[in-house]
């Protein structure tokens, strides 16, 4: 059993983990969706959100931007984070189930990846950046160079 949470803003992935009014929590059994429900987190602070996700047994999170504190805490608890995702939540979920989703994906209609976020010089919170899915990125140029 594997639980995925997607930070929601309407039907889209919420641009901010700490401000998302709710999460869609999907339960997977052998790679197929077993159940799906929405959890409301309006007025929750970052710590309360993290404890809610832990309480629900979430092991993977799809979200837009995420602050360093939340990313560090979730990483500490072994939650795999796909951050800086933009687009429809359903598309992001399907992309993840197909094994194609990567942090920083810009999703167009139909779940097609139409680009990746490129940030300025310095540490991002993307892969290999010191927080989130992998550690030790440290200082380097933008974490994605096409």
């Amino acid at each position: 059993m594997h639980k995925i949470a997607i930070a929601l803003f309407g039907s889209r992935v919420s641009p901010r983990f700490d401000c998302a009014p709710g999460f869609r929590v999907v339960e997977l059994d052998n790679g197929t969706i077993n159940s799906s429900r929405e959890v409301y987190t309006e007025n929750f602070n970052a710590a309360q959100r993290i404890s809610k996700l832990r309480e629900l047994g979430v092991s993977t999170l799809i979200c837009g931007g995420i602050d360093m504190f939340s990313a560090g805490q979730l990483d500490h608890h072994g939650v795999k984070i796909y951050s800086w995702i933009t687009g429809e939540a359903q598309d992001a979920l399907e992309c993840l189930l197909q094994g194609k989703l990567q942090p920083g994906f810009m999703l167009a209609a139909g779940g097609r990846c139409c680009g990746r976020w490129r940030f300025r010089q310095g540490r991002g919170t993307g892969p290999g950046s010191g927080f989130g899915n992998s550690r030790g990125g440290g200082r380097r140029k933008g974490w994605y160079n096409p």
Partner: peptide, 14 residues
């Protein structure tokens, strides 16, 4: 891009 995906302000969603 949608402004909220770029700007990521605390008020964007509410």
């Amino acid at each position: 891009q949608k402004c909220f995906d770029v700007f990521r302000a605390d008020i964007c969603q509410t």
